[in-house]
Structure formats: structure tokens, C-alpha cells
Design a protein around this nucleic acid. Structure first.
Lengths: 199, 199
DNA sequence: TTCGTAAAAGCAAATTCTTTGCATTAATAG
DNA sequence: CTATTAATGCAAAGAATTTGCTTTTACGAA
């Protein structure tokens, strides 16, 4: 009922010490091994069968360490999921703002509607801490921002980022979350509409 | 790992028996008392403190009954949440399709972004069974359908229901889920746009 | 470097939740 | 009314969670 829980990093510190030169302090090492254990376990078994004692065993820490740092399984899974949802590359340059957005949106829809994608989103949204969810939409916003900047640099008009969030990202995510899997055609239509109604 | 779980009603049956004339069979009674217990407990304490043994005690059943019927707390909470998310009335008639939609959307945004609203949505989405989430968007679709039919009966043009889902409902829900609370003005703008771009 | 301090981790016992087999009760069909 | 099937109660066994206390580790200061 009262977790010290400092989420993610606990203090990546300056580390003047002898050993420990590489990554971070002990906290960082524990976090890394726990995250790794979670990813591996999620890959080899059903999410319903992953438990904290299991994770702890695989990560080489005690369960109480995990309970104290993350509070419960939900929060830990959300923490790991957010990590995995961070884009690992810039949006592909397809020649024009519209093509860029189309390419990006199709990939986004595909990744997010995949089995693992849905699970990660669920994990993020299921957690109490809303911060993780915020981070996710922030990642998305940044990607779109890159596309928008690129378009403007080319001298094209491009809709406001928030407009894109409302008219492209939101519908895709809504349908993924509430049952439908958005078809490619639908995604293209969303992009076409937001581009064509750009003020 | 292997729940008989027949979700909701198990068979509201014909009940020829002497007693039991009113609601349904034993199953229905148990479901009702468990749902009631959940609602009451959620009202009087933090969601994190609500446990199955607690619910069972308040509902006058044994924990194993709940485990066998619902599988786990998540599923039970989702089941209760869906119930509470079912609209209890038709959308208000505000004179025109646009006004109807505006009125409905503002109320929807307010209810869903409230504390209890967010919790219910989270509960629904966190559950494994996707059926509950589907039901939710189905409720919404039906409400909009009523508004659309009314508008057409008046001879107005009104956007396709799926367009409204994409351009009004989805953005509202996305922002609620991923951090923002949509302001009234934003909701009005969404409605204005979907109405003004009706083919 | 060495020492002191504070945060984090280990350990283990106590508690609470979850699962399961078996007995019992209730609802339905015949 | 009786047989059958499904659902619940009960209680023991198994896991997970919580917690107090000890030990380790990282970091700052002397």
C-alpha cells in the first residue's frame, strides 16, 4: 500500500566507483536483468503464466525486490511494455508528407494490432500509473512531428500534429482496442482525409 | 488455466420450479449479488484493495465460486464495468443532428474522463476477453445510430456512423486513455468538423 | 583511500490469495 | 417425482504477497 517505487531509473548516478564502470549502479543492473527476464518469459509462455516469483528467479533477484520496486506485476509489465514501444527509428522518408504519413500509419497499425503489440498496449493501459500511457502517445507525437517538419522543410503544407493524432492515430488505436483490426484501406482513407482537409 | 467460465448469464432458464419465480435461477442470483458486492466495494475503497475473498464475503458466496465463474479479478471487474457502461437512456434530442451529437459527445467525454469512468474503461480493456471491449464500442455505436436515424428522419444529412466513431468517439477516447482530458471546446470542434465535412 | 551514511537487496516468517478434489445443493428434462 | 447435470460449498494444498530485520552496495566526505 506504500511503495517507494521510483519507477524506471532510480538514479543513473555518476559512478565514481571501481567496478560498475559500464552501465549504471546496482539499481540499473537489477532493472536491466528484470526487464530482460520479463521479455524472455513473455516470449516463451502465455502472459497469464508469468509471475513475479518466476521473473525474480530468472533475473537472479528475490521477489521482494521486485515487489518493492514496482509494486505489482501490472506495473512491471507496463514498465517493460513502454520500453518496447519506444520507436527505434525515424519514420521512413517516402518522398512526400502524405506518403510519409501513409507509410508510417500502415506500419503503426500493423505493429499495434499484432499479438505482441496489443499485449503491450494493454499492459500500459492496465497499469495504475498513467505516466506510461502518456509516454506512449508522446512517442507517437514525436514521430509525427518528424514527418511534419520534413514536409514543411520541403515546402509542403501539412496538418497540425494534433489533428493527425485525432484523425489518424486515435481511430487506429480505438479500433485496435475495442475489437476491430483496422484494414489497410481504412488507414489509407484516414490519411487521405486528414491531408485533404488541411487548412 | 481451464475455466468453464460461461461469462454473464449461464442460462436464465425457464424456471418451472416453485420458488425462484422472480429473477432467474441460482446462477443469476449469484451473479447479481457478486456484481452488487463489487460495485459497493469499489465505492467504499480503493480499487487496489478490492480482492476476490472480500467480494465473496460481501456477496455471501465462497471465493472458489468466483474463481470458477470468472477466472480472476480482472475478468470480474471487466464484467461489472461493461454492465455499468451500458447507456441507460437514449441520446437527448437537442433539435438537430449537430446539436444532438454535440450534446451527446460532451456528456460522453465528461462521463468517460471522470474517475469512475476511467476506471471502468481500464477494467474493460485490461481483461483478456476482448468481448467486453467490443460490447462497449457497440453501445456507443448504437447511441450514435439513434442520433443519425433521428437526423435522417428530419431530412437532415448526417455523417456515416463509422465516420463519427473515427472522428469524434475515437479522439475523445484516445485522449482520455493516453493522458489528456479533452476539453469541451475540443469536443465541439470534433463534432463541427465531422458535420461540416459530411459528403 | 577509508569511513560513514543511506538506499536497495537478500532472507525468511507470516499472511493472504488461488487452486483443486470431493461432497452437497439446486435446476431442468423426462 | 425422479434422474441428470451444472453450480456451489467446503477445506486442504499450493503460490504469491507482505513485512521486519539484516546485509550489501554505492556514493560523498574527510
Amino acid at each position: 500500500m506504500n511503495h517507494p517505487v521510483s519507477k524506471g531509473e532510480s538514479r543513473v548516478a555518476g559512478m565514481t566507483a571501481k567496478e560498475n564502470l559500464r552501465p549504471g549502479g546496482r539499481s540499473a543492473r537489477v532493472q536491466a536483468s528484470v526487464h530482460k527476464a520479463v521479455r524472455e518469459l513473455m516470449a516463451e509462455m502465455s502472459r497469464a503464466d508469468v509471475t513475479i516469483p518466476l521473473i525474480a528467479g530468472k533475473a537472479g533477484v528475490t521477489p521482494s525486490t521486485i515487489y518493492r520496486r514496482w509494486g505489482d506485476l501490472q506495473e512491471l509489465l507496463a514498465d517493460v511494455a513502454v520500453d518496447r514501444l519506444r520507436p527505434d527509428m525515424q519514420p521512413i522518408d517516402a518522398g512526400s508528407g502524405k506518403a510519409d504519413l501513409e507509410t508510417w500509419a500502415e506500419q503503426y497499425a500493423e505493429e499495434m494490432s499484432s499479438g505482441p503489440g496489443r499485449e503491450m498496449i494493454r499492459d500500459v493501459l492496465a497499469a495504475q500509473a498513467g505516466a506510461n500511457a502518456c509516454k506512449c502517445s508522446e512517442y507517437t507525437r514525436q514521430q509525427i512531428d518528424v514527418i511534419a517538419e520534413r514536409a514543411r522543410a520541403r515546402g509542403e503544407t501539412f496538418p497540425d500534429v494534433e489533428r493527425v493524432m485525432d484523425q489518424v492515430v486515435a481511430p487506429i488505436m480505438y479500433r485496435i482496442l475495442f475489437g476491430d483490426v483496422p484494414a489497410t484501406k481504412r488507414v489509407r482513407d484516414l490519411v487521405a482525409r486528414v491531408i485533404s482537409t488541411t487548412d
